[in-house]
Nucleic acid binder design. Structure first.
Lengths: 354, 354
DNA sequence: TATTAGCACTCCAGTTAAACGAGTGCTAAC
DNA sequence: GTTAGCACTCGTTTAACTGGAGTGCTAATA
């Protein structure tokens, strides 16, 4: 565990650890007498009191009011997460079988993941669908559907499919359509959407001749494919777990949290910022209180994991709960799920356009 | 308003009406003295008390406890909704512009509708996407995507598009693909999914020759298109409004309601049963307390409207709130929105496969 | 006969006061 | 440096009290 520390000696650390662990369990302020018995230090409550007084001065714990026990401060939690938390002996869970084999579709699977996580942890969970931003165009096809509509089908790497109905005044004949298909595919194939620049577009339009409008529509559809807000799906579960924690309901932030989980807009911010924060090498990130990217969550803790399917295809799994959440369990669960998801996409199953 | 009634004379009806209206406003049990002043009957509180006693015996109102005022019973609400409720002078709202013009996409529009309704009423709302069950196949197209995948695109009436990736061992050449496309289109075009019977399938497979597996996959995709649970999308908004009503939070049903709105599974039942209940000619249905199709909602009232885009394409808009909800306002809002939606689909805009 | 005034009674909601107890800080002794 | 002891603080719980809104009943009234 924690090695030498500038301001905390061995004993203080042990006491801090005991306080936090106890508080995580009970949710009640913990007093000196409790610690005196709980630890193997064999110190009297009076001694503990002195140490606690020091710890408070250092900002690791605080008193809700005079003559109450101590609770961890944000700084205390941070120290705990960084140095004190033990990794769980991971029991190899049967998640894989349960979650992944059973559902072929991305959407269903992610919903399952959120649900499973929520029931495992008793916190609110969210899972974002992978974002395909840096993905490349694999295939484009235009077809006549009826006299007024052309259907454009765009397949991206990873087999994400996007459809776009295009209104036309007159139906192009099959030959023209074939030519356009050839044109589009040869011009755009293999490009990521970012790589389609003005030059490409100009050339394309030049060659399209009288069918510029169709080409324009296809380009629009491509643009839409990356417009993140439109594409990014977020699945949530267990939001009502929030109501289980009095420190959230009484502080009044519960309602805001719940509607954030319903409307999901704020969750986008959470997901994107968690995707950009690198996290440590494990890809797991812990936000405590005000560290959270979202103001709404300043009274709770957020733990996120970023899963990476390769080729820049990434997504986020997150857990939102009270500051006194069971970090060990949560982190373990996330690490576990992450590793499962990281592996999946060797063989991309069939998915559907959002 | 209500004409003659077997057990209720004019005066009793007036009193009942006054009690319910007052209770809807305040949420507090209403006493005899209040009514004595509130109405233009000019009766003393004592007289009112006698009448109230009668009304209670008849089951229209009840006392939360001795020496409290009266509140409407389910039966009372029912009578109110059926006979007493006045229709609002509809101010022509600018909903259409706001909601409908601004968003081209079905999904976005329905989300907007839910949101608007929630903010208008302060209750929890849900909107189901139109179900295309009786819809017909318009167009099918298979294309080679890469060496291991064929993409099947299916367009239904109303321009609902469904994609399906099909794994293949070896790529069919273009000629074969063309033949299959022709085959599928001529065999299935214009059929609703229910109409595809064993005969059709057998004939199709016979003609498919060595490419049965592909045909099978296409048929699977078709089956999926109608599998309702998979297809039916529900958008919700304002679920947290539930927390505003003490009668729901204290009875403990709020949590269940909230998670019903989050998980949405129960809402499917609500939507389907509201779709099958014809409702009166207006297409609007009011469920009070136990009348609700869902047990979770037995402590509240549910008002639903069914919108009909024609061709069997239907959807539901619903509102969930306390029994003392503002029925007049709610019904008016629903009727309004319904009429807007009913009109929309003259020109089906572009949509995307689920 | 229908209505009203008056009164005793009920019961909830809100307030106050007291008792409790968990916990601290400090001091003095070990 | 550690501990025992004690006075003090402060939130929580319990109990008792009060006010008020509302009812039901009875007797008087129009």
């Amino acid at each position: 565990m924690a090695g030498e520390n500038l301001e905390l000696d061995e004993r203080k650390i042990k006491i801090l650890d005991a306080i936090i662990r106890n508080y995580l369990e009970t949710g009640e302020p913990v007093g000196s007498r409790t610690i005196s018995k709980y630890t193997d230090l064999h110190l009297s409550s009076a001694t503990i009191r002195n140490e606690m007084s020091d710890l408070e001065e250092l900002g690791y714990i605080l008193q809700p009011h005079t003559s109450a026990g101590r609770i961890p401060s944000d700084r205390g939690y941070r120290f705990y997460v960084d140095h004190l938390m033990r990794e769980k002996d991971r029991e190899v869970t049967q998640m894989k079988e349960f979650v992944i084999e059973k559902t072929q579709k991305m959407e269903g699977m992610l919903k399952q993941v959120a649900k499973l996580l929520a029931s495992n942890t008793n916190y609110a969970t969210l899972v974002s669908a992978p974002s395909y931003n840096t993905n490349r165009i694999k295939f484009i096809q235009l077809s006549n559907v009826d006299s007024e509509h052309i259907l454009a089908v765009i397949v991206m790497n990873g087999n994400l499919v996007k459809n776009r109905m295009i209104d036309v005044k007159e139906t192009p004949d099959n030959e023209t359509l074939l030519r356009l298909n050839l044109l589009l595919n040869s011009a755009l194939n293999g490009l990521s959407v970012q790589e389609i620049n003005l030059g490409t577009i100009a050339k394309l339009k030049e060659q399209a001749g009288s069918h510029i409008t169709i080409v324009n529509d296809v380009l629009d559809a491509l643009a839409e494919t990356i417009s993140a807000a439109d594409d990014l799906q977020i699945y949530t579960s267990g939001a009502t777990n929030i109501l289980k924690y009095p420190e959230l309901t009484s502080s009044g932030s519960a309602t805001n949290l719940l509607s954030a989980f319903e409307e999901k807009e704020e969750l986008f911010d959470l997901v994107t910022s968690s995707l950009s924060d690198a996290g440590d090498e494990t890809g797991i990130q812990v936000y405590i209180g005000n560290e959270s990217p979202i103001q709404t969550m300043k009274d709770c803790s957020v733990v996120t994991a970023t899963y990476d399917l390769g080729e820049g295809v990434k997504g986020t799994i997150g857990i939102v709960g009270p500051k006194r959440m069971d970090y060990e369990n949560v982190v373990d669960n996330l690490r576990n799920l992450k590793s499962q998801l990281d592996g999946i996409f060797g063989k991309p199953a069939d998915e559907e356009g959002a």
